[in-house]
Nucleic acid binder design. Structure first.
Lengths: 342, 342
DNA sequence: CTGAAAGCGCTTACAG
DNA sequence: CTGAAAGCGCTTACAG
């Protein structure tokens, strides 16, 4: 069933069918209705490649996510929520979604850019990808509209979306302060990553504002994984002025710190309160359950789609100055690791 | 840069360019080389929609995954590994990947099928979707090749891929038996789901083979989530002949059972050994770390792609009898919850 | 409001 | 081995 067949059966030209189905104003109400009815009845659906070819637009967005991180297990559950939010928001806006492959070492530099051209993609959404990806850098440098969540690249038509890492960290410290803690230490992520640096900045700002000192040895860098949190926890617990609370910039590290506390014979939260960041699944499964700064995956995904649509609507002329990053609020989820009786 | 431009610059016809770039035998080695070089030099990439239109095939596979489960948080991390394996395997086979939207309540019955037709998709891969989805049922009933991981539908050109749930459960029971346990209880998933039923069958088979009785009350049904495991654990621990080991058909339930043990003043693994299923991230984060039957996401993804390619190669004639399900082995990951000293 | 015609960028019989 | 031509299924000026 193609448009010619449908036109024949409707007794009109293909042009009229096309107009009716695309809701053009010129077609009369009566014929439009008749054609639409017949179309659904016959199960007709227009051939998208043909439409793309003639309209020179595909209504399709490319999606890239990093499989390097994934192989390491970093941020896994987080990614899926993002993916899902992006998919929903995009399909509500009537865009199709194509998954782009992370290029291997033998792929050409311009792999992403080429994929965009070949498929007539209108824009790309990038999920949490490291900054040292050549293909991606080249894509960002092009005129292809790109919205990135937790990405570090910039370009002429690029928008960055991210959680409010600093404010989230501040909220965590404030929460601990409100519980009476005055000796609050932190475990950071790798500080060359923007989210890690921003969370540390938030921690420092909150401590300064609350008049808390940050003694020597209260800031330990980890790598977002469990073992680094455990090691950092051990170090923090051996500082002369032992902290009574730890804010870790990632949940796995926070859980590692809880293990270190247990090994030192300290009870959480009685002897040591712990707050994490991200709200991964495990945060609700460990005991005591982990208080954490939750990222709003849904909002992040929606913000990325909104930002991308902004770029698309603005057209190739605009957006030549680097766009302001879109910042999405976080939410503190209070569980047993920071307050007793849970 | 399109094929006409490239042809003009190469001094040949578009037909020859097309043949050279598509590796047709008829073109001379010299011209082929010349054209290829020029193509990469000029950054030419063929327009896929145009190719799809004329070739009547898109080299594109559709991907469907369930967002219902996802909203509930079930199997989250598992899905992402699958997604990633499928993407890799598919792109190695030179297929493109399009994400299909889970239809909302107001979408037409044939939404998936229509999407397949509109985009000329050659087949679909379905990830862990519940059996009561109309759109999906209709897709399976069509002649569209479908490979499903942990799905329950069948159709003329459908293949199911799944872990060897029964053998995995058997391995878990054998492991506990080898540690000296003779009173082994189980917490099942919702038994209308095939994986849950298969895991229970494996448990029963192993118990029978090892000569273990399954006393009244040793089989409790849960829903794969934490709270149900905790509740089931409490019930199992109050059975007259208290079990010394529990095999739970999912990791969250296993962790819940560990909580129940702790609440009852029992130490894991000394007083109660626990084994789960899936190997979610949290399994390695809880304390003691959870022994579990790991599913091989990568192998599952690859098997799904291989199965789909089998259907595609067989052509529309074949595959009319329901294909045998592809079974992927599991792997027992031994951690602290089943053996001391870890 | 409607139709005939051109054309989007390719591939592939067909002819040489 | 190569080219001229037709055609894949649509949309959209253009003419009426």
């Amino acid at each position: 069933m193609n448009i010619r067949e449908l036109a024949r059966r409707s007794g009109v030209s293909t042009a009229t069918v096309s107009r009716a189905l695309n809701d053009r104003a010129e077609v009369s109400e009566a014929t439009r209705e008749r054609i639409r009815r017949l179309a659904t009845e016959l199960g007709y659906a227009p051939n998208e490649p043909a439409r793309t070819l003639v309209r020179r637009r595909s209504d399709t967005i490319g999606l890239i996510w990093d499989s390097g991180q994934e192989a390491q297990g970093l941020h896994n559950p987080f990614l899926l929520g993002l993916l899902s939010a992006v998919r929903t928001a995009l399909s509500e806006a009537d865009y199709h979604l194509m998954l782009l492959t992370t290029p291997g070492p033998d792929d050409p530099e311009g792999a992403h850019l080429q994929a965009v051209r070949r498929h007539n993609l209108e824009g790309v959404i990038v999920l949490t990808t490291p900054p040292d990806d050549h293909c991606l850098r080249q894509l960002a440098a092009s005129t292809v509209p790109c919205a990135g969540i937790d990405t570090a690249f910039t370009g002429p038509r690029t928008v960055r979306v991210s959680s409010d890492n600093a404010a989230g960290a501040e909220a965590a410290v404030e929460h601990l302060y409100a519980l009476g803690h005055r000796r609050i230490a932190t475990i950071t992520g790798p500080l060359h990553l923007p989210p890690a640096a921003e969370r540390l900045a938030g921690y420092r700002r909150a401590c300064a504002r609350l008049g808390l000192g940050v003694p020597e040895g209260y800031v330990v860098e980890g790598d977002f994984f469990l073992a680094s949190g455990e090691a950092a926890g051990r170090r923090l617990l051996s500082v002369a002025e032992r902290p009574t609370a730890i804010f870790a910039a990632g949940d796995q590290m926070a859980i590692g710190a809880m293990h270190a506390a247990a090994d030192a014979g300290l009870a959480v939260p009685r002897d040591l309160a712990v707050v994490g960041f991200d709200d991964i699944d495990a945060a609700a499964l460990v005991r005591p359950a982990l208080t954490t700064v939750a990222q709003d995956q849904r909002a992040l995904g929606e913000a990325a789609v909104a930002a991308l649509r902004g770029l698309l609507d603005a057209g190739p002329g605009k957006g030549l100055e680097p766009a302001q990053p879109r910042i999405v609020p976080t939410r503190l989820v209070i569980r047993g690791s920071s307050r007793s009786g849970a």
